[in-house]
Design a protein around this nucleic acid. Structure first.
Lengths: 160, 160
DNA sequence: TCAGTATAGTTGTATATGCAACTATTTGTC
DNA sequence: GACAAATAGTTGCATATACAACTATACTGA
């Protein structure tokens, strides 16, 4: 969303609900722009869709290099159905593989393959370069830390 | 993206590129969760898809209550083709209308209708209530102002 | 004025995604 | 132990979106 450019957000003001609407819109817009430009970058440089990159990164971060389907779905904020199809495509490209889960025969382990790790490394190179041009150039180190803290607070699931 | 919960981001550290990867992932994840929950909320309460809400809000913010197609596309970060279809649907629901642009016969003005304004008001009620449960409950007024400032910096288009 | 180029929007086509219904397995309860 | 409820994942179907090719109009320079 594009709001009046140069608009300032004074801490002392904080009056109307519109301030929150604007902030939320700003969050949506910022994210959409960054995701789109990164997606194009990854796609053109590595032929790796952003969603694939996201899955591979989750898997690498996982303790064992593998996650169950529902863990992936939650981590990347997709539906379970969508995740099934997404993993189908990743598996067809041999970047991940499905493994049986010994304890629970309903569940599926999804593990990153060697080929997947190579691809992810390649993509991380592109990603880091991209981040230098966006995050690093526009926000100081302290500002990034502050942003991370605020987003973490925002990201907490709602209380039941 | 789900990273180790409870992770802290110390300003003094700021070492590896991974800090930026994490921050970027956090931004994607936060946005996805918020957008999804708001979308479900708007859809179930008002039968208004989030994308429709976004368009209507942009139109209301516009000086004249109307924007050209490419302005909408840019504001909501969609392709022009996608925007054409989106506006098609909104127009079919009589929430907006296409108008000829006298100066430029290539261009189309999209204007919000009375019905669209009513719908938007309804949706804004839901939206504000939702925001109380997310933004307002999780971030203080100052924190929201800080977040808005940081996002605005991030959102600036890259230098040519 | 005219040719060439740029811009605004639409449309054909492919794909990615969500939701709901479904199967298979596990867990809980009596 | 058996039946009910919960959980994990897949699939059919509908829809939203992007990309690229296309049409129509406007601009630019000789």
């Amino acid at each position: 969303m594009r709001y009046t450019s140069g608009m300032t957000f004074l801490p002392s003001a904080c009056p109307s609900g519109d301030e929150k609407v604007q902030l939320f819109g700003l969050l949506l817009e910022t994210n959409a722009r960054l995701a789109r430009s990164l997606g194009l970058e990854l796609e053109s440089s590595c032929e790796l869709p952003l969603a694939w990159f996201d899955v591979l990164l989750q898997l690498r971060r996982a303790p064992d290099g593998r996650l169950k389907m529902n863990q992936i779905a939650d981590a990347i904020v997709h539906s379970t159905g969508g995740t099934t199809r997404l993993v189908d495509r990743l598996e067809e490209a041999q970047l991940v593989e499905r493994q049986n889960c010994p304890n629970d025969r309903r569940a599926i382990h999804v593990a990153i393959t060697d080929k997947g790790n190579v691809k992810l490394d390649e993509a991380l190179g592109v990603h880091l370069e991209y981040l230098e041009g966006t995050l690093a150039n526009r926000l100081s180190c302290d500002e990034r830390a502050t942003l991370a803290t605020l987003l973490t607070k925002l990201n907490r699931p709602a209380k039941p």
